[in-house]
Nucleic acid binder design. Structure first.
Lengths: 331, 331
DNA sequence: ATGAAAGCGCTAACAC
DNA sequence: GTGTTAGCGCTTTCAT
């Protein structure tokens, strides 16, 4: 890198002091119009850009947020990031995006990186294997706020923003119930995850309350391929299945592949409903009915929570993003 | 934020000088084993983390790369980011990820942000509307290397890494030719983009050379919805169409939706081939035959180019990521 | 209206 | 083996 343009250099060429130049560039009222103009002209001529490292060091404000997620390559986190970034930009903040690849060691390292970079706050979706929350607690003790989102610890002592898993699952269950479905293949994700538990419990409970006779065939699938296999297997047994519930986009895509293979007609032969971020249901014909769990909305809310924390609110609260039933033609 | 632990604090508590502490923590050979131990113990007890802003300011190395892309929410850039991040991690570098939302103003601002943060280098996929490359040239003049990837300027004066658009399109054309397809609906993306031009030219040329009688029905689609509509329209006219070529994943998903709606059998009624990052072709049954244009590989190559630039190689070169025909059962 | 000086936390050349 | 010192680029208090 070329030696960059500094206040010092500008000051020297104009025979001014560094502080005058600094003030001129900030439109400090003390500065005379003439010097202000002189300084500004030279600065823009030389394309002066303040050195954030110096500014941040001096002001003790890194203008940086950290975000730690299991994977960017996801059907969900990209929209969360987009939302966070849109907001952060407005305040001149940037995002340090770190992936932990579901590896707790990397996750801890990423946390360190955030601390080293003196980020003003961290957004975290924990990895599937995280069981020790001490590193997070320590960061919080050092007064860097952490907003957990989507994949969150179960402890009550953290700021958390989640999809309203219970409500979403219930909305889906209700839609199935209304359509009089009696035998529902219900596919859920990784069993460690809080969202799996919440969605499954709510889903099962709904039918226990509203129609005990509904037959739920419960299955697990941790990725697209497994969802495909599970669906294929369940449908090839000559069980009566009149609907499938997919807990996530990943599962939906796997399930749909199986449906296509078996040449089953939707919605005549079978109904489909999913909980989804909102993209995948629209790439199928007929479009899939789904409960929207918007990563974008979640990102926006997470950001406003962060701002509240930064403004001093340390009130721990568990926020939820409402689900919304979007009717396709699959049920 | 709590006042963080500094070298000074450690030095004071141990009655040592700051430099001794600094050296002890870096395993400098001069330091006696006893002091080294003392310092290390206290540092880890207090969970000292070096302040990167200070380190970077002092060493004039931000340990940061910038990456500017039109959108994270893409079927491609997420895998590029993943690749870049994996590599950057190994050297202790972090990534400042900036989205320009296809807005040239934001793009320019993001460029400024990179400069202000004194990033060591920038990876850029330009927005669809970018026509003025001066801001980029200026950054490069200030000796911050820029590696353009995927969406690149046409000028020869930049480091560029692209998908081998020509080769990919030819591979797809060849596959169609081998299967004796005679009437091919060929759907391409945004016409401003270099990749569109390259792919379309190569595709058309192939048939001009190998089989002039092949009928190419050329269409444009800038998003999923348009691809859906275009396909629907083309197939509902009672034209003979025995194959569809989709230039991208976006187009493929739109096309497949139309195929599902029309209940057309693949590959019996019609053949499909796409150029794809590798995820979407596998969510359909039958799996789609595609030419892989890997964002992940591109990221890895972009990174190694960046390293070369940083090491002093200013040799401008245009690199390409080879395509690879992955056979599904759609052709 | 402008300047001098201190200091953010760190590194490294130089001293002893 | 350890301490002293200067300085990275900037902001900000205090002086003039």
């Amino acid at each position: 890198m070329k030696p960059s343009v500094t206040l010092k250099k500008i000051a020297q060429t104009l025979n001014l002091s560094i502080s005058t130049v600094s003030r001129a560039l900030k439109n400090h009222p003390d500065i005379s119009e003439t010097t202000r103009k002189k300084v500004e002209d030279l600065a823009s001529l030389l394309e002066y850009e303040p050195n954030s490292m110096a500014v941040n060091l001096r002001t003790n404000n890194s203008k940086l947020f950290g975000i730690i997620i299991p994977e960017i390559t996801s059907m969900f986190y990209d929209s969360v990031i987009t939302a966070l970034q849109e907001e952060a930009r407005l305040l001149g903040y940037s995002l340090l995006i770190l992936q932990s690849s579901n590896n707790t060691l990397i996750e801890a390292e990423n946390l360190k990186l955030c601390k080293q970079n003196r980020v003003m706050g961290i957004f975290v979706a924990i990895s599937a294997n995280t069981t020790n929350y001490d590193p997070f607690s320590k960061i919080i003790e050092s007064e860097i706020p952490i907003i957990f989102f989507d994949k969150v610890p179960s402890s009550e002592h953290f700021h958390k923003i989640c999809i309203a898993d219970k409500a979403c699952a219930e909305l889906a269950a209700e839609a199935l119930y209304r359509k009089n479905k009696h035998s529902i293949l219900s596919i859920f994700g990784h069993e460690n995850l809080s969202i799996t538990k919440a969605r499954q419990n709510a889903f099962e409970s709904y039918f226990k309350v509203h129609n005990k006779k509904t037959k739920l065939i419960l299955k697990k699938a941790e990725n697209v391929q497994e969802a495909y296999e599970v669906t294929l297997e369940a449908l090839s047994k000559k069980q009566q299945i009149d609907a499938i519930f997919c807990m996530s986009d990943e599962i939906l895509t796997g399930t749909m592949k199986a449906i296509q293979e078996l040449k089953i007609n939707i919605p005549n032969d079978i109904g489909i409903i999913a909980i989804s971020n909102g993209f995948f249901p629209h790439i199928y014909y007929p479009e899939i009915t789904y409960v929207e769990s918007s990563g974008y909305k979640l990102g926006k809310l997470a950001y406003s929570r962060m701002m509240a924390c930064l403004a001093g609110s340390s009130f721990i609260q568990n926020f939820e993003i409402d689900g919304l039933l979007i009717e396709g033609n699959s049920l």
